[in-house]
Amino acid sequence: MADYRNPKNSRRNELILEEGKLAAEIGRVPKQPMSLDENFRVARSTPTQLSQASMLVPSRIEAESNDRDFVVGLPSKKLAKSSDLARAVVPMDARAARAEITAATARLTPEKLDQLLPQIMERLEPLLALGGNPRALISARRALTRRILGTSFRSIRGRNGGGRS
């Protein structure tokens, strides 16, 4: 919990020991056992309790509209462990999936991004998650990137920036 780390932590062990000695002299006992772990802290969190009648409480529809606006992106290693992978790959062998990706990529135009990219990503993500990175897959991914990003990244090595394409 580096988030809670205090600038004084570097010498807080010494401070606690000194405090302990002082406290013993005056007969004080700590309310909670003091850990000498540098991440030790005393903290409490309380959610605000609002009555259901409060005007501040969002309705179920309002809360859903406000909160259900995100989706989780699974990195390859997590995707490989998820059941989504099995569902995505089992019906089709890797070679056929790569062929489908290559064919769909060839048809990809800016106008068809909405239609084709979800299909391509659905095939590509589990294949990438399977690892191994066979040459054909790397080639298919590069072709997809060129189509979408529209930039020759070979020419911008060593430069940070942006451009319309």
Partner: peptide, 25 residues
């Protein structure tokens, strides 16, 4: 959040307190 009338609404939902370690924490 935005309520169904399009009005921005908000409230403190959580309060967290931290005190550094020591005899009186």
């Amino acid at each position: 959040y935005l309520n169904s009338s399009g009005v921005i609404t908000g409230y403190v939902a959580w309060t967290h307190t931290w005190v550094e370690g020591g005899i009186f924490s």
